[in-house]
Amino acid sequence: MPKEKINKLESTCVPLPIENIDTDQIIPARFLTATTREGFGENLFRDWRYNKDGSANKSFILNNKAFSGKVLIAGKNFGCGSSREHAVWAIYDYGFRVVISSFFADIFKNNSLNNGLLPIILPEDLVLNLIQAVQNDPGVKVKINLEEQKIELPGSRKAYQFEINKYKKDCMINGFNDIDYLLNIKNKIIGFEEKKGIT
């Protein structure tokens, strides 16, 4: 899918205050049979979002019209489990560009950064406060500046500084891929193989 550059973003949020949301919940395995990257958004959180008969589960947050936006806020250890990048494609395809949690699983975080989905780690109490604020008023917004690594939360004048690897930040802002970088240093890779005596 064409990856958009991301730098500044102001958006309302969708709160999903559940811990340990695994990639099987984000996109169940039975939807992994596609051979392209597109179209996974319609099955995002499939088994929470729809009832067994295929009707929308009204109590699930994505079916609540009051909540929308490009920012998903989730409980800790988000994206644990399977390495399926389809989970990130589904979240992105649905329309999210940022996920906020106090804690991300490693592979999910890497996959997000490789696909233009920004994972922002905030301290647990800030995440809980933010969820509370959004639940009280779905209209409140967060303001994100990736270049400055700052996020402004509703009800707080002070922007919070979040961490991100400088290289990855540059990639996201400029829409670069790791693969472009690696292809550009192929001579170094060949040199490494020669030095080690491997091909």
């Binding site: 390495s83 990048e85 890497n110 996959n111 490789n114 696909n115 891929n177 790791d178 690696l182």
Partner: peptide, 10 residues
């Protein structure tokens, strides 16, 4: 270790 599909491509 496990990797995503973008990394498989790399």
């Amino acid at each position: 270790f496990g990797i995503g599909t973008s990394e498989v491509e790399m």
